[in-house]
Amino acid sequence: MGKAGEALKQVLKTYGISQNKLAVALGIERGSVYRWVHEIRDPTAETVREIVTALGKLEPSAAGKFIELYLGDLVEEEEEGS
């Protein structure tokens, strides 16, 4: 499974955000967050957007860190190409 789960797990731990708190912010069941964090299932691209939005409401710096961890290589390549 993928990089999204790894990034999400690290961000939740670093910023002290529980899986349940994120699930409530997303309006979904905690089991979905659990499956992403434990890399049982990857979130869809649309869900990744929703995760960033929810993290931004809970802890703005957590949203930025998630983006950095999840898309870091891509973002760096874009900046170098600019």
Rank of each mutant, 00 (worst) to 15 (best):
K3W: 08
K3L: 14
A4C: 03
G5S: 04
E6T: 10
E6F: 03
E6S: 06
A7K: 11
A7Y: 12
L8T: 08
L8S: 08
L8M: 06
L8E: 09
Q10H: 14
V11D: 11
V11H: 09
L12A: 12
Y15D: 09
G16R: 14
G16E: 09
I17F: 12
Q19S: 13
N20V: 00
K21N: 01
K21D: 03
K21F: 00
L22P: 11
L22K: 11
L22F: 09
L22H: 09
A23D: 04
V24E: 06
V24A: 05
A25W: 02
A25C: 03
A25Y: 01
L26R: 04
L26E: 01
G27C: 04
I28Y: 05
E29L: 01
R30C: 00
S32R: 13
S32M: 12
V33Q: 02
V33R: 04
V33S: 04
Y34N: 15
Y34C: 04
Y34F: 11
R35L: 06
R35S: 13
W36K: 02
W36D: 00
W36Y: 15
W36C: 01
H38E: 05
H38F: 10
H38L: 03
E39F: 00
E39D: 05
E39S: 09
I40G: 12
R41E: 13
T44W: 01
A45V: 04
A45Y: 00
A45K: 03
T47V: 11
T47Q: 14
T47N: 07
V48W: 00
V48G: 00
R49F: 11
R49H: 10
R49P: 00
E50H: 04
E50M: 06
I51K: 05
V52A: 11
T53S: 09
T53L: 03
T53W: 02
A54T: 03
A54L: 07
L55M: 07
K57R: 15
K57T: 08
E59W: 05
E59P: 00
E59R: 15
P60V: 10
P60Y: 06
S61I: 06
S61M: 09
A62F: 04
A63P: 03
K65A: 07
K65M: 07
K65D: 13
F66C: 05
F66S: 10
F66P: 03
F66M: 08
I67Y: 03
I67M: 14
L69A: 14
L69C: 13
L69W: 09
Y70Q: 11
L71T: 06
L71M: 13
G72T: 12
G72P: 10
D73I: 00
D73R: 08
L74K: 11
L74Q: 14
L74N: 05
V75C: 10
V75R: 15
E76K: 15
E77H: 09
E77T: 14
G81R: 15
G81L: 13
S82Q: 08
S82L: 13
